[in-house]
């Protein structure tokens, strides 16, 4: 499965949203209804799924679906 699909699947599962809502420009908090605890939980799930430790200073910058995909790609994930 492509990285994008995995990320979308996780967000759909964790936030209870539909796939078509999870657009690259969608903000986790403003558009997808996440709260601050949800975002911590999401980041932990990405860490587990992709085997990549995401430091707090990086995770705080991950605001949109596109931010997450771009970040993971920049770490060589696919």
């Amino acid at each position: 499965m492509a990285l994008e699909d995995k990320v979308v699947d996780i967000i759909v599962d964790k936030l209870g949203v539909t796939r078509d809502q999870v657009k690259p420009e969608a903000s986790l908090i403003e558009d997808l209804g996440a709260d601050s605890i949800d975002t911590v939980d999401l980041v932990m799930t990405f860490e587990e799924e992709f085997g990549e430790s995401i430091p707090d200073e990086d995770s705080q910058k991950l605001k949109t679906v596109g931010d997450i995909i771009a970040y993971l790609k920049s770490k060589g994930k696919e």
Binding site: I37, V40, D41, M44, E47, E48
Partner: peptide
């Protein structure tokens, strides 16, 4: 050390 942020609540 990967405790769920939902554990305490």
């Amino acid at each position: 050390i990967r405790f769920s942020p939902f554990m305490i609540p």
